[in-house]
């Protein structure tokens, strides 16, 4: 008899908890899967967004866009998905994993970056120099930034000569680590990472002309599981706000509807 009462109490507790969870009057939580190039910009955006919803929780998981793409199809608990390549969210939509159309949030840029030498006066041709042993790029097989790096090298006719020097990072942040640790003298890195205070001012960067590669169109979706999540919708809306756009521009992203800063 006593056991049954205990069970009832536990059951009641469960019910109450579930009720509390869905009630919008109480704290909500979302988890965002974001491409590695968003690491620093997203941190600032989330911090600014949290001030408007202090009770709610926003968590971010960073990684390669392809990785999150696979995870979402396997039921990963992500409410929003920010991809470095619009094709990933587009395909998720076709497969029925998206609650919204892919929304273009930024266009990425690639740079030559070095932690040990002055990269501001470099150009892609500088990669041929003898004292440059290793050039780090993201893996072109699955990382959007790596694909664009390969395109830029091919378009300048340097691919065959530079390829023997290439080392491949699993995503754009790991590629930056190879350069930061000095193991690769130069890397082709996202502008959004190079502008971060931790990396900026080391050896400087040189912006690779975007005429040399396809645009890095970056888009996000709200996933199917977050279809009715008001916090996810609010965050999606916040990406269009003046504050969020200012942060994105600060990290070197070109925003939809605007021309490049330089």
């Amino acid at each position: 008899m006593k056991q049954i009462t205990t069970l009832k109490t536990i059951g009641l507790l469960f019910l109450t908890c579930t009720f509390l969870n869905v009630s919008p009057a109480y704290a909500e939580k979302i988890t965002i899967a974001a491409a590695a190039d968003m690491k620093y910009a997203m941190k600032d955006i989330v911090a600014a967004f949290q001030q408007t919803v202090p009770k709610d929780t926003v968590e971010v998981v960073y990684g390669s866009s392809g990785h999150a793409f696979t995870q979402i199809q396997q039921g990963a608990p992500y409410d929003l998905y920010f991809a470095a390549d619009i094709n990933y969210p587009r395909e998720l939509g076709q497969k029925g994993f998206a609650a919204t159309e892919p929304k273009l949030y930024a266009i990425g840029r690639i740079t030559l970056w070095s932690s040990s030498r002055n990269a501001t006066t470099m150009s892609l041709k500088s990669l041929l120099a003898q004292d440059i042993e290793h050039v780090a790029i993201a893996n072109p097989k699955h990382a959007p930034y790596g694909k664009r790096a390969e395109e830029a090298l091919r378009a300048s006719g340097l691919w065959e000569k530079v390829e023997p020097k290439l080392v491949y990072g699993e995503n754009i942040v790991q590629t930056a680590q190879f350069v930061q640790s000095g193991n690769a003298q130069v890397g082709i890195i996202a502008l959004s990472l190079v502008l971060n205070p931790e990396l900026a001012g080391k050896g400087g960067y040189w912006l690779i002309p975007d005429s040399l590669h396809e645009p890095l169109e970056q888009a996000f979706i709200i996933t199917k599981r977050a279809e009715n999540n008001t916090l996810a919708q609010r965050f999606a809306k916040y990406m269009e706000s003046k504050e969020a756009r200012a942060i994105m521009i600060r990290y070197g992203f070109v925003l939809p509807g605007e021309t490049a800063a330089k």
Binding site: T70, H134, A136, K141, E170
Partner: peptide, 26 residues
């Protein structure tokens, strides 16, 4: 290997990394 290898075919791309790359590339 993933952290220090640089994923070079024939030099540092061992089987485990190759599998990871296949998965990442879908």
């Amino acid at each position: 290997v993933l952290m220090i290898g640089g994923n070079l075919p024939g030099i540092t791309r061992v089987a485990s990394v190759q599998i990871y790359d296949h998965v990442e590339a879908l």
